[in-house]
Write a protein that binds this DNA or RNA. Structure first.
Lengths: 149, 149
DNA sequence: ACAAACCTTATACTTTACTACAGGGTTTAG
DNA sequence: CTAAACCCTGTAGTAAAGTATAAGGTTTGT
C-alpha cells in the first residue's frame, strides 16, 4: 500500500538517494522495512523525519546534533527522563542563543536596507559590522529611534 | 601601538592561527598591515570581524554567505545601492525563515521538557517529531493551551 | 648571546557530509 | 521479452572547512 521507495522519498524531500542511505548508515534515518527483493519501503513518518533533517540542517545543526534531537524521546516510566530533559534544555539554550543572534543580525540588515540608501551622510554605518556595533550600543539605538520618530 | 599579532587575535577570538590565515586566504579577513619582519598586525576592527565570523558560523551560515554579509557595504554615491539592498533583503528573508524554524523547534523542545516528564499518559507526544506535529496543528496547540490554563 | 616563544610560507593531512561509480538484481512499459 | 528505469551493496572520489607539520626567520627574557 502506501509505502514509498527510496526514489520517491528522495523526490518528496529533495534528499538524494545516496544521501538517504548515508543517513541510514549514520543512524539518522531508521532502517526501513524491506520489500521481498530487498528494496527499502518508507512510511509517512519517514518523510517527516527526513524533512526535519533538512530543516535542522538549514539552521546550522550538524548531523550529530540532529541525531541527538531525533533521539530525544521520553519513554513511559523511563528513569532516563531527567537525562532527556537535560539534553533538551541544553539544545533549548543553544536554540535561544541562535535566535537572539539572528535577531541582532536581522536588525543590522534592516538598518542597512532602510537607512543606508538615500542620505549622503548616512553611509557611515552602512556595513553590517557598523550596523551591529550600533545595535550593541544602547545609547546609539535609542538615538537612532529618536531621530526616526 | 595597539596592534595585535596573530596569536593575540587567536586568543581573543578563539579562532586558531592557521584558521585565521585560512580566512584571509578566502577573503573573509582582509589582509592586515605587516610589521617590518612581515608579522600580521591586526586592529580592533579585525577583532570584531573575526567575532562576527564566529557568530555567523554558529547560526549555520557557510563561509561564502559570511563573505557576502561582510561585503555588504553601501558606498556613498554608489550606483550599486540597489544591488546591496537586494542582497541584504535576500539574507533577511533567509534569517527570518531560520528564526521561525528555530522558534517552532524551541516550542517542541519546551513541550518535551514541560509536558513529557510526569504523567503516565503524556508520553505519546514525547519525541521532537511528535511535538512538532502538534505545533503544526493549530487545533492541538490551542487544546494544549486550554488544558494548561 | 642564546633558548623559548613567536611568527612566516607552503604543503599535506583530517573530518564532515555528501556524491559518484561499478557491478549486479528487479520492475515496469511497450 | 526486453530495454529503460529503478533498486541493491560496496568502494571510491569530492568539496568545504579546518588542522598539522616542516623548514626557517624574529622577538623577548635572562
Amino acid at each position: 500500500m502506501g509505502y514509498l521507495r527510496i526514489g520517491q522519498l528522495s523526490a518528496r524531500t529533495g534528499i538524494n538517494n545516496e544521501t538517504l542511505r548515508f543517513y541510514e548508515a549514520r543512524g539518522l534515518m531508521s532502517e526501513p522495512r524491506r520489500s521481498e527483493a530487498g528494496y527499502r519501503l518508507y512510511t509517512e513518518a519517514d518523510v517527516r523525519k527526513a524533512e526535519f533533517i533538512v530543516r535542522a540542517k538549514k539552521m546550522g545543526f550538524g548531523l550529530k546534533d540532529i541525531s541527538e534531537l531525533l533521539s530525544l524521546r521520553v519513554e513511559k516510566e523511563s528513569s532516563t527522563c531527567g537525562e532527556v530533559k537535560d539534553l533538551a534544555e541544553a539544545k533549548l539554550l543553544e536554540i535561544e542563543q541562535k535566535i537572539e543572534e539572528l535577531q541582532r543580525m536581522k536588525g543590522a540588515l534592516e538598518q542597512i536596507t532602510e537607512a543606508c540608501c538615500g542620505g549622503q551622510e548616512s553611509a557611515i554605518h552602512c556595513t553590517i559590522l557598523n550596523a551591529l556595533d550600533q545595535i550593541d550600543d544602547p545609547a546609539e539605538v535609542s538615538a537612532r529611534v529618536a531621530v526616526r520618530a
